[in-house]
Every structure is written in C-alpha cells, then in structure tokens.
Computed example of a mutant assay.
Amino acid sequence: MKRSLQSFVEYLQIEKNYSHYTIERYQRDIDEFYLFMNEQGIDDLKSLEFQDARLFLTVLHGRNLSKRTIARKTSCLRSFFKFLMREEIVKDNPFSLVSLPKKEHSLPRFLYEEELGRLFSSIDSTNPIGKRDLALLEILYATGARVSECCDIQLNDMDLTLGTVLLHGKGKKDRYVPIGEYARLAISSFLKDGRGALLGSKKSHSTLMVNFRGDPLTPRGVRYILSSLMNKAVEGSTLHPHMLRHSFATHLLNNGADLRTVQELLGHSAISSTQVYTHVTKEQLRKVYLATHPRA
C-alpha cells in the first residue's frame, strides 16, 4: 500500500506536474482512506469493492464535512484507483460508480477596498518582519497569486524596473503579471532593508519570501501571517490567502476590467472559473441598489 501511494505521488509529480501543495493534499486524503481500511480490517487494495467505497463516504458524511470536501476526497480516490488500474495493481476501481456530491455554489469571500486600506495601514513596516509582511500582502493583492505561487517566487522572477513578476502556476503554466507602484515600493524596501536581515550571514537562497528564521516561507506560514495581520487590524477576524485573490479579481471587474483579462491574470484555464466573480459584482450592485434607490 505504501509503495502504491509512492508510485502515485511520483506520477503526480512527473506526469501531471501538480504543485507540492496539491500533492500533499492527495497524500492526506489517501492516508485517511488507508486508516479507514485498517479500521475495517481490509489489508489489500485488490479486495476493495463498491460497498467499501460507499461506506467510506458514509463515514465522511457522518463527520459533517462539506459537500465540496467530500467531492474532493472522492475525486482523489477515483484518480488514485484509476492509476492503480493503469499500473495493473488492481483490476477494478471501487470509486468509479460513486457519484460526486453536488457542489455548493457559494460566492467567494472578498475584502472591500476600505477594509484592505485598514489592513495595509495596520502594518508597522519599520522593521524587517513588517517590511516582509507588507511586501507579502502587496504581492498577493497586486497579482492575485495563489499562495503556492507566491511562495515559489524567486528573486530572478521579479523585474521591478518593468513592474512584472513571473508566477509559476498549476501544471507548470507560467504567466507574467504586472505589479503596481505600491507593490514595487514595498518589495524594493523589503529587498533593501528586510530580507538580508532575516536571512542573516549563514543562509543564502533565491526564494523571495522568507520566514523569521530566513528559510523560504511556506503556504502554512503565509496563512498564519495573514491571520495575525487581520486579527490585529480587525480583532476577531481572519484572512485567508484566497480572499486576497478573490479581492483582486472582484475589484478589477468592479472597476471595469474585462473577463478575459482577469482570466489571464488569474491563470484560469477555463473562463467558467473566472465567471464566478461576475456573480460577486452583480450581488454587490444589487446591495448598492437596495441601499440607495428611493423605491428599492
């Protein structure tokens, strides 16, 4: 079973070019299924049947997981067993006939421009950590980068003269994204007076964003930093990296950007993924209308 998982991980890395974060998520989902197999006394992948897959889904539903999470785990296991069939490790895919739960169509959460203004103003950028935090926040909001893309930015990916950054997207699909003056100034200040101080004299690497020890910043580290900043700006509030990506897209559309441009900037392969933000802008228009029209 361990060898099967390792082979699948290598397949995701080499053939599918999945990101490190995505592969970690697949591993956790499969490890969770292995734990279920152990609890059920199943010690062989070949002996799994459709009923076992259904029972696993019942267990997931019993934990009150969201439909989105259950659908993701099911899709992961379906891909895993499809790979095992290709490698002739198993004969059948017990998840092939399992139907995915219908996705919940919730609108993405974003921050208003005023909220972002308060967040930026709350950062003390007079010290190396503050300069790093401001540069991190500016990059995420200026580019709409995914958290993994932000963590992967190398020094030579930045061109502060042209005002662009090269982002390494899903499936090794790279894209150049412009950055504005605020982001350029924050990054320049961090590179001049912050990054070197955090690295110290004993460490040297080319990753742009670093933690307080001077090591490359991880997605988990980014989430912790953003939550801390948001809680400081608005007590009791949390901020996830994807909220900045959602804010980036929503604000562009609200201010007149066309859908195709936003699609390119976000690195979406299908425009349907970008269209969700038009629903956000329409909902915002409706709220403004209801709040301001005399006969609303």
Results as ranks from 00 to 15, higher is better:
residue 64 N to V: 06
residue 225 I to A: 00
residue 40 Q to N: 14
residue 219 P to K: 08
residue 28 R to L: 14
residue 73 K to S: 07
residue 43 D to A: 09
residue 81 F to H: 12
residue 178 P to Q: 02
residue 26 Y to R: 11
residue 52 D to I: 11
residue 24 E to H: 07
residue 140 L to W: 03
residue 211 N to A: 01
residue 232 K to V: 04
residue 70 I to Y: 08
residue 188 S to T: 15
residue 30 I to Y: 03
residue 7 S to K: 11
residue 41 G to K: 03
residue 220 R to F: 13
residue 15 E to K: 14
residue 106 S to K: 11
residue 69 T to C: 01
residue 62 G to D: 10
residue 273 S to I: 05
residue 232 K to H: 13
residue 189 S to V: 00
residue 170 K to W: 08
residue 100 L to Y: 06
residue 239 L to P: 03
residue 195 R to G: 09
residue 263 Q to C: 07
residue 216 P to Y: 05
residue 25 R to W: 12
residue 70 I to E: 09
residue 279 H to S: 11
residue 51 Q to C: 03
residue 143 T to K: 13
residue 198 L to M: 09
residue 173 K to G: 03
residue 10 E to V: 07
residue 89 I to D: 05
residue 188 S to H: 10
residue 215 D to S: 12
residue 74 T to G: 04
residue 270 A to T: 10
residue 219 P to H: 08
residue 180 G to Y: 09
residue 35 L to T: 12
residue 181 E to N: 07
residue 254 N to T: 01
residue 64 N to D: 10
residue 209 M to A: 08
residue 269 S to N: 14
residue 183 A to Y: 05
residue 5 L to I: 15
residue 270 A to S: 11
residue 115 E to G: 04
residue 24 E to V: 04
residue 268 H to E: 10
residue 13 Q to C: 08
residue 236 G to A: 07
residue 259 L to E: 01
residue 20 H to G: 09
residue 19 S to L: 04
residue 274 T to K: 09
residue 41 G to F: 11
residue 272 S to A: 14
residue 241 P to V: 00
residue 247 S to M: 06
residue 56 F to S: 06
residue 105 H to R: 13
residue 9 V to I: 15
residue 281 T to H: 00
residue 278 T to W: 00
residue 164 T to M: 14
residue 127 N to V: 04
residue 267 G to T: 00
residue 286 R to E: 14
residue 64 N to I: 03
residue 130 G to I: 06
residue 21 Y to T: 13
residue 149 E to D: 13
residue 210 V to M: 07
residue 296 A to C: 09
residue 10 E to C: 08
residue 266 L to A: 01
residue 12 L to M: 12
residue 109 R to S: 15
residue 69 T to D: 03
